[in-house]
């Protein structure tokens, strides 16, 4: 129980910290967004600046009221954000939470699937490599993986886009579903969604499964060298049981920590990936916001992506205690 409280507390604290950083960036730093927005608004009103109106607008967009003392601004901002109010987009003139709320499921879908596929492939490959440790297959797979790992995912994305998207036109080059398809629970819709996600997911998977495979290979090799495995064989247990309950289970457990680390990496990467594939997720909107200097959206995306990661890690961490008896109730390190 203690452990749960601790972990949840830590997660909330992390989100809190990010929101604070975001407040600091918006408000406190000279030349920061709030100041810029203000200057912009004053300029827009061409001399006839109605300071009160400007301040109101600034507050509407950023949740910050420039006329109040800093600490009050801070409290207001925090309260607003934790109530789900991320301000209003300058560009779309819509609440940020509405825009991003629409986009978030797509990002989670894209990145979650990539992560899942990449882990499945990596674990399977790693296990096979460990089994044939030292063979030609092992050596060449290792070299191949190092090479794949050297490719940035966005380069893989562009290459895939170039060949399969533009040259051969096998896959669509952007969007999250076909233009003629209505979002519904129909097969056609799902088909279209999957079809549109193939390239982004592939570019992520191709460049990331190798790391998992290498880690899995190492784990499996060390489990194979353990005494308890030898004893299990001596005990005359059936091979199936040894493979599943001894080797697989113990080699997979440490991978869970790797999964937690990857959540952050993958979600962070969504910004670049979604831009390349014009895939309307949080990252895409974040990128658009850069061009239009739409600070509320920018900050909102940062907060939202962090929250998604924190929740992902929290779930992973809390379930870890369920599957590994050794950490149950203990003061375990997060990573």
């Amino acid at each position: 129980m203690n452990y749960f409280i601790k972990r949840i507390g830590q997660s909330v604290f992390t989100i809190f910290a990010v929101v604070s950083i975001s407040f600091g960036l918006i408000r406190l730093l000279p030349g920061g967004p709030a100041a810029q927005l203000r200057a912009q608004l004053i300029q827009d009103s061409a001399g006839a600046a109605d300071m009160e109106r400007v301040n109101r607008l600034v507050e509407l967009h950023t949740n910050i009221q420039p006329s109040k003392p800093v600490w009050e601004q801070y409290v207001d901002y925090m309260v607003a954000v934790f109530q789900g109010d991320l301000g209003e987009s300058l560009w779309h003139n819509e609440p940020v939470s509405a825009i991003l709320g629409e986009a978030l499921p797509w990002t989670v879908f894209l990145m979650g699937t990539s992560l899942f596929i990449s882990f499945v492939i990596g674990i399977a490959l790693g296990a096979v490599m460990a089994y044939y440790e030292g063979s030609n297959f092992d050596v060449s797979a290792t070299s191949g993986i190092i090479l794949l790992n050297s490719i940035p995912y966005y380069i893989a994305a562009v290459v895939l886009l170039y060949f399969l998207g533009y040259q051969m036109q096998v896959f669509p080059t952007g969007g999250h579903y076909g233009s003629g398809v209505e979002p519904s629970l129909s097969i056609g819709f799902f088909r279209s969604v999957l079809y549109h996600s193939v390239l982004p997911i592939s570019s992520m998977v191709i460049t990331s499964f190798g790391g998992t495979a290498i880690a899995m290979r190492g784990n499996a090799i060390s489990v194979l060298g353990n005494d308890y495995l030898r004893v299990a064989r001596l005990r005359g247990l059936r091979d199936r049981r040894i493979t599943m309950e001894y080797v697989a289970r113990n080699a997979l457990l440490p991978m869970y920590t790797g999964l937690m680390m990857s959540i952050g990496m993958v979600f962070g990467g969504s910004v670049i990936l979604e831009e390349i594939f014009t895939y309307p997720g949080v990252g895409y909107y974040m990128f658009q916001a850069i061009g239009s200097r739409d600070y509320p959206v920018l900050m909102g995306s940062l907060i939202l992506i962090t929250t998604a990661i924190v929740i992902g890690i929290l779930i992973a961490d809390l379930t870890y205690g369920k599957i590994d008896p050794r950490v149950r109730g203990e003061d375990r390190e997060v990573y």
């Binding site: 992390t14 962090t306 997060v334």
Partner: peptide, 9 residues
């Protein structure tokens, strides 16, 4: 906290 905050964004 630094570990959790996504680097790129």
């Amino acid at each position: 906290i630094a570990l959790t905050i996504p680097g790129l964004p």
